[in-house]
Simulated scan of single mutants.
Amino acid sequence: MLGVPESDYDRTGLSSYPYGSDTDETFTSIVWWQNHEILHHGAEIALLRDLFARGGTRIR
């Protein structure tokens, strides 16, 4: 089972800086941002899926 101890929620430096987030960012804010991105892109995929299933006109 995967888990994060509660003591790490406010710990900084859990990102892969310089290729990731800022090292001062807390674990909670990283998780919040990832959740936001998953929801955002999932909604885009659902919209495109629904538009494709409806069989809209093609743009030329």
Rank of each mutant, 00 (worst) to 15 (best):
S7D: 15
D10T: 15
S16L: 14
T26P: 07
A46Q: 01
G56M: 11
W33Y: 08
W32L: 13
D24C: 06
D8Y: 08
T26H: 09
S16A: 14
F52T: 06
P18Q: 12
R58H: 08
A46H: 04
G13Q: 03
T28S: 01
A46R: 08
W32F: 07
Y17C: 06
T28H: 03
D10F: 12
L14I: 07
F52N: 04
F52G: 01
D8F: 12
T26S: 13
R54I: 00
M1E: 14
A46P: 00
L2P: 15
S7Y: 01
R60Q: 15
E25W: 05
S7C: 03
V31D: 09
S16P: 10
L47Y: 03
M1Q: 09
R60V: 08
I45R: 11
N35G: 05
D10C: 10
D8E: 15
P5T: 03
D10A: 11
L39I: 09
L2N: 06
A53G: 09
S7M: 11
M1A: 13
F52K: 12
R54H: 00
S16I: 14
Y19A: 05
M1G: 09
P18I: 14
I30A: 02
D22M: 12
E37Y: 10
T28Y: 03
V4C: 13
H36I: 09
I38D: 03
I45D: 04
V31L: 01
T57K: 05
G3Y: 08
I30S: 02
W33D: 08
G20V: 09
R49C: 02
D22C: 12
E37A: 11
H36K: 15
R54L: 00
G55A: 02
I30M: 08
P5K: 01
R60F: 10
V4K: 01
Y19V: 07
G42W: 00
I38W: 00
S15Y: 00
H36P: 00
Y9L: 08
P18S: 06
I30T: 05
T28V: 07
D8G: 08
E25N: 10
R49N: 11
V31E: 14
E25L: 14
T12C: 03
S7A: 07
A43Q: 02
S29P: 08
S16F: 06
